[in-house]
Every structure is written in structure tokens, then in C-alpha cells.
Design a protein around this nucleic acid. Structure first.
Length: 429
RNA sequence: UCCAGCGUAGCUCAACCGGUAGAGCAUCCGGCUGUUAACCGGAGGGUCACAGGUUCGAGUCCUGUCGCUGGAGCCA
């Protein structure tokens, strides 16, 4: 196996050759330090004038930031080193001399960093976020895979608007106008009738003119859908999935959370059960906190923050007014003005990370909703078939991956949670 | 779309009431045997976003345009 900095401890006292990029360098006359970054970690390499070839010693001074190099040396434990190890170099080989690197070890503004996002990803913070994001996705998929879910991906190009056309990106499809997917949910419902428990995981697209720290035009969503599951069971699935994911990141990505200076005490408490309050209880809670809000209103960013802050773990709000929720959600049998829907609001002001519901499974009722919402009925015939041929109660939800990453990492802005964010009118790089 | 703030060196920022354009980092040259965003000395580097106006004189004041940032709205 190749020697990498992450596992350098196994090579103490031995010679190792590391390949990577020059993260920084320092010089003190007859001793020179090259800080090497190899993608798994960072280690300082010490060059002593009388112990390395002259060419290598010269190169240790002239090599530029982010040049790619190969460094050979003896691995040593070192108390003063942040990672605990150091390399006493015996040689340095240049692979490519980098041009002057734009992102220096000093501060930079967000505009400049976003313009250089492809290079910014190499920095310690972004590296940590990439690794945590990967762990989060793996944890979620592991949880679902281990609980009998079948991954079945849904299309990106879709023939008709899911709900209204204003938020969709139109695409020319051999002369026909189609749209980038907003959700895989409707397809998931059909798949659930085949495999009982399914999920899709992929990008979704919104053409909204949203310009906030919580919105992206292109974001990834994890959407489970389960046959014969009601709203309460749906909430249980959501809280178990989220709690498992948070605990997994705490167990496996401590170092990265530390790099991000995340207060992990706020994550330790994220265990089941999560608090569940009804929409009307939430309204009352907000009114008690002095918010001017009345039953029937939807929650804005401020309200979500207040609700999230009221608990030490994510809170689930259920039984929203049907009027402010999607057409396919089942109504409450006792009060048809309410939808069997829930949102999960993350703690610490990160807002909604999960939105789910029990789906309408009655054919007549669904036909009525499609008509009321002025949706093109022919585009939904296949969807109605799910209600025509052995209709079944079923529920599911969508989990926004980037908002979840922002919350777990403690990032202020969602743009750092995905390698190349698609922001309002910004698609470079 | 609306509101607010900001556009000065490659980067991050200063420049007081309108009076000669400045620092740190980066780059180049030199010094230092343990540095941790190393440090010390030196050098080069400017269409003060763009256009117009006021003034003896504008980076600074006024108008417009463009761009960026934050927020609102919008938002399964």
C-alpha cells in the first residue's frame, strides 16, 4: 500500500516516499521546512543543509506553493508537530513547478475564493467539508441499505411540471420542452409498489431567484419512500436516519470537525427521539416568543430559526395547513384542512433539512387535487395508475444534503457544502 | 424584483475636513540551524470599477452605469 500522511504513524523509523503538493514552506538558513499536503493529511518535512543533496536543498527554497513534488525521508515522531509526525528529508524531487498560487496563506474575500473555487477546495477547511460530506452520504446510504431499502434512481429530465412551472429549468428535448427534475418523489411512489422500501439520491434543480445562505439552484436530495407507512412512521424513519448520520460523523470524522472548529457538544445531543410538535403548537410557541404570526401562515427564515433554537436537537413539525403544502399530500381524516405533512428543522438556526408527508392514496381525491392545481392531467395518468392498481398507504420525505452538511459542519453558508455550487446566475467555475 | 453596504497593487485592507497613492501577504534579490499564517533587510508592482459633473485641485463630493456582498421576497 502507498504511504500516505494519514497512515504515516505505521512508518515511524522507516524511510518513506510521499507525493503531494507544497502547502507552505519556511526557511532558516541551513534548515528548511517544506509542508507537504498529500490529500490525506499534512506533514512538515525538514531539510538540513549538510544531510541532503545540494540540489534538493536549493529546491526546498525555490519550490513554489502548490508545486507537486515527491519527498523521501525518515519518518519521525515529533511532539512539536500538529499531526505528531515529521519527515527528516533525504531527497526532494520536483514533479511540476506551480505558477504563483493565487490563494496565499493569508485572508481572502468570498468573491475571490468563489472565483477560484477549484483551487480553494485544496485548503484545509474545504478538504474537511468534502470528507464530512462524503461520510454523511455514506452514512445515510448505509442506514437505508441496512434497513431493506432498494436504491432506484429517478429521472433528471422530466416531461411536466411537478407543481407549477415557474421554478423549473426548461430543457429542449428534441424539440419538445422538458424540465430538470425538482424531485424524484412521484416516481418513487411507483417504485415503492415494486420493492416496498425505496430511495433515490441525486441532484434536483430549482430556477427560483433565491439569494440566501440556505439556497442553491442545484442541490442533492435523498428521498426515501415506503409502502404501508403512515405519517408517524415516516417521522420515526427521518429521526433515526438523521440521528444515525450525526453519530456516525462524530465517530468517524472528529479530526475534520475539529478543523472546522465545530462545537461537537451541540451534535452529541442529536439522538432519538426528536421532539414532535404540531403546526398549531409551533404557531403558539412563536407567538409566545413575540412573533407576529397567525394560523395559516407559512414559516419564513426567522421563524424556522426560532423554532430550531427552541430545542437541543432537530424538531419535527407536523399537520401543516393543507393550503400551504403540496397537492399530493394526504389530508387528516379528522380535519381535512390539515395535511399529513411534517418538516424537520435543524437546531442552531440551520432551517428545514427534511420535508415529508403521507401521500394521498385515493384516486378520486388525487384527481380532484390535480384539477384544483390546474396541472396537466395527461402528464399524471401514470401517477394515477399507482392509485388504480392496488393503492396503498405510503409515506416518504426529501432530505436536503447540503443543508444537512452545513448544519453538521457548522457552516454559515450553504455554498461551501458542495464542491461547485450553482448559485443564482453564477455557474463558474 | 426590492433594500442596504462595498468596488484602491496579484490578494487582504488603509488613506482624518477635498491637497504628492500606503501597509502586510504574494513575486524577485539577500540574511538566519527548529520554523509553525516564521522572522529580518531590500526591489519591482496602481486606468483608485466605468462614464460624466462640481472644484484652483477629486480615491474622497454629486449623478448614472456595471459588478460584488449581505438581507428580504420567492422557496416540497
Amino acid at each position: 500500500m502507498d504511504t500516505v500522511i494519514e497512515r504515516i504513524g505505521a512508518s515511524v523509523g522507516k524511510e518513506a516516499t510521499l507525493s503531494g503538493w507544497v502547502y507552505n514552506k519556511r526557511s532558516s538558513g541551513k534548515v528548511r521546512f517544506v509542508i507537504l499536503r498529500d490529500g490525506t493529511g499534512v506533514i512538515q518535512c525538514v531539510f538540513l543543509k549538510n544531510q541532503v543533496p545540494e540540489a534538493a536543498f536549493d529546491l526546498a527554497d525555490s519550490v513554489t506553493q502548490e508545486s507537486s513534488v515527491e519527498i523521501t525521508g525518515i519518518v519521525r515522531e515529533e511532539k512539536r508537530a500538529p499531526g505528531g509526525y515529521e519527515l527528516t528529508a533525504t531527497n526532494l524531487k520536483l514533479i511540476h513547478l506551480a505558477e504563483p498560487y493565487p490563494i496565499t496563506p493569508k485572508e481572502h474575500g468570498i468573491e475571490f475564493l468563489m472565483e477560484h473555487r477549484h483551487l480553494w477546495l485544496r485548503s484545509a477547511r474545504q478538504h474537511a467539508v468534502l470528507r464530512i460530506r462524503s461520510e454523511i452520504v455514506k452514512a445515510m446510504r448505509d442506514y437505508l441499505d441496512d434497513n431493506d431499502f432498494v436504491l432506484a434512481d429517478t429521472p433528471i429530465l422530466t416531461p411536466a411540471a411537478g407543481e407549477g412551472t415557474t421554478t423549473l429549468f426548461p430543457v429542449d428535448y428534441y424539440g419538445e420542452q422538458v424540465y430538470l427534475a425538482q424531485t424524484g418523489q412521484l416516481y418513487n411512489e411507483a417504485i415503492a409498489a415494486s420493492v416496498r422500501k425505496t430511495y433515490c439520491f441525486g441532484p434536483t434543480f430549482r430556477a427560483e431567484k433565491s439569494k440566501t445562505r440556505r439556497h442553491l439552484m442545484e442541490f442533492w436530495m435523498l428521498e426515501p419512500e415506503v409502502a404501508f407507512l403512515d405519517l408517524a412512521g415516516d417521522m420515526t424513519l427521518a429521526e433515526e436516519l438523521v440521528a444515525y448520520t450525526v453519530q456516525r460523523v462524530l465517530a468517524k470524522r472528529r479530526a475534520e470537525l475539529a478543523t472546522l472548529e465545530r462545537d461537537t457538544a451541540r451534535l452529541e445531543t442529536v439522538k432519538v427521539p426528536f421532539p414532535r410538535i404540531s403546526y398549531h403548537e409551533a404557531i403558539k410557541l412563536l407567538q409566545d416568543k413575540g412573533k407576529e404570526i397567525k394560523p395559516g401562515d407559512d414559516f419564513g427564515g426567522d421563524e424556522e430559526t426560532l423554532l430550531g433554537e427552541a430545542f437541543d436537537r432537530p424538531v419535527m413539525i407536523h399537520h401543516y395547513p393543507a393550503a400551504i403544502k403540496a397537492f399530493y399530500m394526504k389530508r387528516d381524516a379528522g380535519d381535512p384542512t390539515l395535511a399529513l405533512a411534517f418538516d424537520m428543522i435543524a437546531s442552531e438556526g440551520y432551517g428545514e433539512i427534511v420535508g415529508g408527508s403521507q401521500r394521498e392514496d385515493d384516486l378520486k381525491e388525487m384527481q380532484k387535487r390535480i384539477e384544483e392545481n390546474k396541472l396537466p392531467p395527461q402528464a399524471f395518468e401514470w401517477y394515477l395508475d399507482v392509485r388504480r392498481f392496488g393503492s396503498f398507504p405510503h409515506s416518504g420525505f426529501g432530505l436536503g444534503v447540503e443543508r444537512t452538511v452545513a448544519w453538521i459542519c457548522g457552516l454559515k453558508h450553504i455554498r461551501e457544502t458542495i464542491p461547485f455550487p450553482r448559485m443564482l446566475e453564477k455557474v463558474y467555475p
